[in-house]
């Protein structure tokens, strides 16, 4: 079981992601987003790690408040977050980073599937059971 405290005053939950690609690895700040069915990582980060659109396995239409966008789904070599080490995890690649928001990805429900996520909104504590 993995557990971590988060800042209740921020109103959103930030998690650390360690993502690996053909050219290296990066630590990123991502939002835990239960409103997103799939995890999304900024395409420029993925590019700098050596991934490309040619490595995508399909395209997906993203629908949100800002309209619709096309993204491609990319298998990630190694994806670590919330105590998990995943070697068969895919993310969607899309430009999601406004300059001053500080977010480089969204962790969606695909990561939570078949796991037990507990959000304690009184203590500000996140727990993932697996």
């Amino acid at each position: 079981m993995w557990t971590c405290d988060y800042d209740l005053t921020e109103g959103i939950i930030w998690v650390t992601v360690h993502i690996f690609g053909p050219r290296g690895d990066r630590y990123l700040n991502c939002i835990l987003d239960t409103g997103s069915s799939q995890s999304i990582i900024d395409v420029a980060i993925l590019d700098s790690l050596g991934y490309s659109a040619q490595m995508g396995i399909r395209t997906v239409i993203l629908s949100g408040i800002g309209g619709r966008l096309r993204a491609y789904e990319l298998p990630i070599q190694r994806f670590e977050t919330m105590g998990l080490v995943l070697t068969s995890f895919s993310v969607l690649a899309q430009n999601i980073v406004p300059d001053n928001f500080g977010v480089e990805g969204l962790i969606g429900m695909d990561l939570i599937a078949n796991r037990v996520l507990t959000i304690d909104g009184q203590k500000g504590r996140l727990t993932l059971g697996y």
Partner: peptide, 17 residues
């Protein structure tokens, strides 16, 4: 200070690459 986004949900597959 970090801020949230207007979030997206993947709703449909388009075409296989």
């Amino acid at each position: 200070k970090k801020r949230g986004l207007s979030l997206f949900t993947a709703i449909s597959n388009d075409v296989d690459l």
